[in-house]
Nucleic acid binder design. Structure first.
Lengths: 137, 137
DNA sequence: ATCTAATGATACTATATTTGTATCATTAGT
DNA sequence: ACTAATGATACAAATATAGTATCATTAGAT
């Protein structure tokens, strides 16, 4: 099973590319050429990132996208949130059948712990950290 | 997004119930009544658990299932493995486009770290630990 | 003003995965 | 032989993922 869907993946690539083009407006056409992502699909993805406030857009000729967040404040967790919803292991496994009367469900607690660890780690993976590490050739 | 699918969930409940019925053969009919899981679906799940060696089965009248592992050696991770395949965040995000020439991909490394943490935690959630904590009323 | 190249909004389609059903064969106790 | 169980396998429905298409709107360039 995979935890990261394709749209999240594409979005991340696009965001990194846009972040590198600091202060320059980047059009979909350029991204398609650079990243090889299906055009219409990428458009939909970018439009959603715009709607969610991660990108700023400019219409008309010469238009395109720039980041609407500082690269160090844009994390993989946020991107996943846009396309995959809030990350959680499961509502409550075994509800009713295993822990019907127990308020403090230990299993739930353990799962919550795992979740928050993962969330913290995914939050630490920022666009900024990716730009730095993989400088363009 | 959810990390645990319904079949894993059902399987876990069934395994806990079977584990509680120590050394007694448990038939699908009983599990269906106790857990309220769709009969045919549960059968398919149990058959798979049997094929994968987590359950031992007995055919014919009076037949059913018992555990084929010690409860303390049967983990949520194993059950997830049966129904959802190996847990992994993603193959390699950004491959080719971000880290084309770099052997030691830092992003990959960070993701691997998250994965192995989660795997360890899920491994620690054993059937035995669930039986203990939620003693039957 | 008009042309052109961009995004916004929205609807549609295709594919894959998840979830669930159904049937027939086999087995073993009575 | 009858009955009650699993084994194997195929099918179907529902949902999620992935991708496509179209028309409206906007803004720069001429």
């Amino acid at each position: 099973m995979k935890l990261i869907t394709r749209d999240t993946d594409y979005a991340l690539r696009a965001l990194v590319f846009i972040a590198r083009s600091m202060d320059r407006v980047v059009a979909v056409t350029e991204l398609v050429q650079e990243l090889g992502i299906p055009r219409f699909f990428l458009r939909k993805i970018l439009q959603l990132l715009h709607k969610k406030g991660l990108l700023k857009s400019f219409k008309g000729k010469g238009g395109g996208f720039i980041l609407n967040r500082l690269p160090q404040e844009l994390s993989l967790l946020q991107v996943m949130g846009v396309f995959q919803g809030r990350f959680s292991l499961n509502e409550c496994l075994l509800k009713k059948h295993l822990c019907p009367n127990i308020r403090t469900c230990i299993l739930k607690k353990r799962i919550k712990n795992i979740e928050s660890y993962v969330a913290r780690e995914l939050e630490a993976i920022t666009i900024a950290s990716l730009i730095k590490k993989y400088a363009r050739t």
